[in-house]
Deep mutational scan, measured.
Amino acid sequence: MTSCHIAEEHIQKVAIFGGTHGNELTGVFLVKHWLENGAEIQRTGLEVKPFITNPRAVKKCTRYIDCDLNRIFDLENLGKKMSEDLPYEVRRAQEINHLFGPKDSEDSYDIIFDLHNTTSNMGCTLILEDSRNNFLIQMFHYIKTSLAPLPCYVYLIEHPSLKYATTRSIAKYPVGIEVGPQPQGVLRADILDQMRKMIKHALDFIHHFNEGKEFPPCAIEVYKIIEKVDYPRDENGEIAAIIHPNLQDQDWKPLHPGDPMFLTLDGKTIPLGGDCTVYPVFVNEAAYYEKKEAFAKTTKLTLNAKSIRCCLH
């Protein structure tokens, strides 16, 4: 018999989150649709729960009410004593943790798909938090293969000092899905179709896995975050240069030392320094102006996964 890495157990509980950011409308629209008619997301033997994560922000069509829901799922915020004085999103995070967690427990949901849009030209993107997770690498390989020839990129946010504390991190297997470009507060049919297909293929993978299909060893190309880059700023902290036209919409493309990065209003080009080629992502993302992030630098690498098969009882 072929030796293989056996994944822990079959997958039982899956959640699909929309509206973690209330103005990213593809996930909101799909989740609302699936709450009314969820036939397309159901798979035999699998509990799939669509869920609106930040209903107040969705109602106002804004990213958040008090603070970013997708950055506060750490033990400090989840452990705060519940009171009306807490920011709305912290209270909501505790409610979500109660419903789908608790985080880092045996009772937490197996998989959470968190649906997002970006204003950046990132196409279909899967966000991975753990480079050693054979199950998710296999799932992402399946999704990428199923979507081809449509490109699907994998963004690895594993980093020693950049801690995200994402909404989906309460699950055993957290999956971020990011599709763009799409303006905030807008629905685009092409973007919706791409996100819908990503979810379909992900659920198909889980179904095949649960039925005992063995997935042979595989490898995927990923883009691992190195650092986030702020806009150049003046002495008052105001933005002093904008994304250069040569960099705009060039997510995932190589940016070499000396290539144009920013452009000042008086026409001066600010190039990339250093001696390493990087791959920019979230270029000129609207939501990241407040976070002082013009783009993120990534490096390209390959992740390998062992063969996996479900432990059938």
Rank of each mutant, 00 (worst) to 15 (best):
T2A: 12
T2K: 14
S3N: 13
S3P: 15
S3Q: 14
C4Y: 12
H5F: 10
I6A: 14
Q12A: 09
A15L: 03
A15Y: 02
A15T: 00
A15W: 03
I16C: 02
F17N: 00
F17Q: 03
G18P: 03
G18Q: 05
G19F: 03
T20C: 12
E24Y: 02
E24K: 00
L25C: 14
T26E: 01
G27S: 09
L30R: 03
L30A: 01
V31P: 05
H33L: 06
H33V: 00
H33I: 00
N37A: 08
N37M: 07
A39Q: 13
A39L: 11
E40I: 04
I41F: 01
T44S: 14
G45W: 02
L46D: 03
E47K: 12
V48N: 00
V48M: 01
V48C: 08
P50N: 01
I52Y: 00
I52E: 01
T53S: 14
T53P: 08
N54L: 00
P55I: 09
R56E: 14
A57C: 06
A57V: 02
V58E: 06
K59P: 05
K60Q: 13
C61E: 09
T62K: 14
T62N: 12
Y64C: 09
C67M: 13
C67G: 08
L69K: 06
F73M: 13
F73I: 11
D74Y: 10
D74M: 11
E76I: 11
E76F: 11
N77E: 11
N77P: 11
G79K: 12
K80D: 12
K81P: 15
L86P: 11
L86N: 11
P87W: 08
Y88P: 06
R91P: 07
A93G: 12
Q94F: 11
Q94K: 13
E95K: 13
I96S: 06
I96G: 06
N97E: 12
L99H: 11
F100S: 04
P102Y: 09
K103F: 09
D104L: 13
E106N: 13
D107K: 13
D110E: 07
D110F: 03
D110G: 01
I112P: 05
F113D: 02
F113E: 01
D114G: 01
L115M: 09
L115N: 05
N117G: 04
N117F: 01
S120Y: 04
I127D: 01
L128K: 05
E129Q: 11
R132F: 06
R132H: 14
R132M: 10
N133I: 01
N134A: 12
F135W: 03
L136D: 04
L136I: 08
L136Q: 01
I137N: 06
M139H: 03
H141L: 02
Y142R: 05
L147N: 05
L150G: 06
C152H: 02
C152Q: 05
Y155Q: 14
L156A: 06
E158F: 04
H159K: 14
H159S: 14
H159T: 14
P160K: 11
S161P: 13
T166L: 08
T166N: 14
I170E: 03
I170P: 09
A171D: 04
A171P: 02
A171Y: 03
K172G: 05
K172R: 12
Y173H: 14
Y173E: 02
P174L: 10
V175G: 00
V175N: 00
G176R: 15
E178Q: 15
E178R: 15
G180F: 02
P181A: 00
Q182K: 05
P183T: 06
P183D: 03
Q184K: 09
Q184W: 10
G185W: 06
G185F: 01
G185T: 00
V186H: 05
V186S: 11
L187M: 13
L187D: 01
L192E: 05
L192F: 09
D193K: 10
D193G: 10
M195C: 10
R196Q: 06
R196W: 04
K197E: 10
M198R: 05
I199Q: 01
I199R: 04
K200C: 11
K200W: 07
A202Q: 00
D204M: 00
F205S: 06
F205N: 01
I206A: 06
H208Q: 15
F209D: 05
E211F: 07
E211C: 14
G212Y: 00
K213H: 13
P216Q: 08
P217G: 07
P217C: 06
A219T: 14
I220G: 05
V222S: 00
Y223P: 04
K224Q: 10
I225F: 15
Y231G: 06
P232W: 05
R233E: 07
N236Q: 11
E238H: 10
I239K: 05
I239F: 05
A240D: 09
A241Q: 00
N246F: 09
N246H: 11
N246V: 07
N246S: 13
L247E: 02
Q248S: 06
D249R: 02
D249L: 00
D249M: 00
D249C: 02
D251V: 03
K253N: 08
P254D: 01
P254Y: 03
H256L: 08
P257D: 02
P257Y: 06
P257N: 00
D259M: 08
P260G: 07
M261D: 00
M261R: 06
L263S: 06
T264F: 03
L265K: 12
D266H: 07
D266K: 08
I270N: 03
I270V: 10
P271S: 11
L272T: 07
G273F: 06
G273D: 15
D275W: 04
C276N: 13
V278K: 05
F282D: 06
F282A: 11
V283R: 05
N284K: 02
N284S: 10
E285A: 13
A286G: 13
Y288G: 15
Y289A: 15
K291V: 08
K292A: 11
E293P: 10
E293A: 14
F295S: 03
A296Y: 08
A296M: 12
K297I: 15
K297T: 12
K297F: 11
T298A: 14
T298G: 06
T299S: 10
L301D: 06
L301S: 07
L301W: 08
L303P: 04
L303I: 12
S307L: 04
I308Q: 03
I308S: 00
R309Y: 06
R309W: 06
L312N: 15
H313K: 15
H313G: 15
